[in-house]
């Protein structure tokens, strides 16, 4: 089974009576445990594509299959359930819930699944990212790098089959970046998760098995899979 399959995905925005096609017939597919980078200049449609793949948005035409489930046939709430079951997220600006402690933030995906004894699992994950002592801290009491590590722990909490990351190092300095990136790839390897990464950073992209370049909403170059 393919982990992610995208076929002829097109996204068109209509604003002020004018049509703007920001994604044009994009297709690709990923096998489980693949690591995949989408690169391209600003405004080329990377984030738009990521949002569509993760079921956060609806395409104008084309289809997305995530773990064999066709997303465009589902309602908003059904897609939310799919995300909770199969998907993890990392964002450029971390997106931790500001009113929850680090530990509680990691617990949320598990709690949403209705699991019990989530605190223990969440604590273990926090320890894995080196923040075992910081569980009771609120996001505002953590540095950017620490917040991104908490969000890594949260992303892996529900043991996702596929992980989406949009500019995961965009807000971090190089040293912290390297630290977070290492952690991301290590966790990914351990869990055997498919990874979809959007970035400007070609060095980061180079760590993946496949790179897809975009410009103006179109795929300009799809590098074949290579083994690292």
């Amino acid at each position: 089974m393919t982990s992610l399959q995208v076929e002829n995905l097109t996204k068109t925005y209509t604003s002020g009576g004018r049509q703007l096609t920001v994604l044009h017939e994009v297709s690709f597919s990923l096998q489980p445990a693949d690591t995949f980078a989408i690169v391209g200049p600003s405004g080329s449609g990377k984030t738009t594509l990521l949002g569509l793949c993760a079921g956060l948005d609806r395409a104008t035409s084309g289809s997305v299959w995530l773990q064999g489930i066709q997303l465009d046939k589902l309602s908003e709430d059904q897609r939310a359930a799919v995300r909770n079951q199969h998907v993890g997220f990392i964002f450029q600006n971390f997106q931790l819930l500001p009113t929850l402690t680090a530990l509680e933030n990691v617990q949320v995906p598990l709690e949403l699944r209705g699991e019990r004894n989530v605190a223990r699992q969440a604590q273990a994950l926090l320890e894995r990212v080196g923040l075992g002592e910081r569980g009771h801290h609120y996001p505002t009491q953590l540095s950017g790098g620490e917040q991104q590590r908490v969000s890594l722990a949260r992303a892996f909490a529900n043991r996702p089959q596929i992980l989406f990351a949009d500019e995961p190092t965009g807000n971090l300095d190089p040293d912290t970046s390297a630290n977070v990136v290492d952690l991301l790839f290590d966790l990914n390897k351990e869990a055997g998760t498919t990874l979809v990464l959007v970035t400007h950073d070609l060095e980061l992209a180079a760590k993946t098995q496949r790179i897809m370049r975009m410009r103006g909403g179109k795929v300009v170059e799809a590098e074949a899979a290579r083994t690292r």
Binding site: A80, A81, Q95, L97, V108, L112
Partner: peptide, 14 residues
Amino acid sequence: ASVAVLRCLGASGR
């Protein structure tokens, strides 16, 4: 913003 994060992590609108 918090609601969007919850939705993203799989909470239903309800």
